[in-house]
Amino acid sequence: MSDGPAVCVNRVSKEFRLGGTAHLGLKNLLLRSPEGRHDHRRVRVEALRDVSFEIARGEWVAMIGPNGSGKSTMLGLIAGVLHPTSGTIEAHGRISPLLELGAGFHPELTGAENVLLNGVILGLTRAMVRERFNKIVEFSGLGDEIDRPVRTYSSGMSARLGFSVAAHVDPEILLVDEVLAVGDEAFARRCLDKLRSFHAAGVTIVVVSHTLTLVEALCDRALLLVGGKLVAAGPPAEVIATYRSRIAG
């Protein structure tokens, strides 16, 4: 592996074609209803505009900003599930997205079956999941409940299991979208400890967070996105100060 940055975002813009033909429906398409065309087809939302930054290997970076400023879109682009309208993105290393609330879980399957399912979706082989199974269960703290269907879990329990799987796939780049807000305090602390140990081990971490105190305490750097533009980047304390002054002003 080279020594270059872990993530390179170069003049990236992202437009969403709202509706497109997808939500327009055949009726509007065939009848060419003027409202239909006007209301849906031309609507484009610019989620990100000409954003450039780099994230160094092993760096812990937070993206902050008001709702709808493009933070989650940026995470999607880094994860490779979204593609930029213009500009380029490079990410070097195995990416592990933390699925919110165990998004990949099937409610009818047991926790154990879902661990296998989530593990292979995140890029492991079955043998690799089996190897790590005990550690995953132990970290989640679910104990015997692991053999009960996930539909019987509380949302906190699903989130714990989800975090636990993602934390055990040897991520090189970990993407975290505000998942630390769930689960009880003890588990939140365990997650933070895990993130710290990842950080110490040289894993690159990108978080989206509204918990500014945590961002200030933990992250190496913060990026402030407002209205799809990168307005500030630098030490968390300074960027948070900029953010607060913008909200106040």
Binding site: G4, P5, T88, E90, A91, G93, I95, G123
Partner: peptide, 15 residues
């Protein structure tokens, strides 16, 4: 700086 303008594969090939 970034290595190149090419859009690289996101996930390196697993083993």
């Amino acid at each position: 700086m970034c290595a190149g303008d090419e859009l690289k594969a996101r996930n390196p090939e697993p083993t």
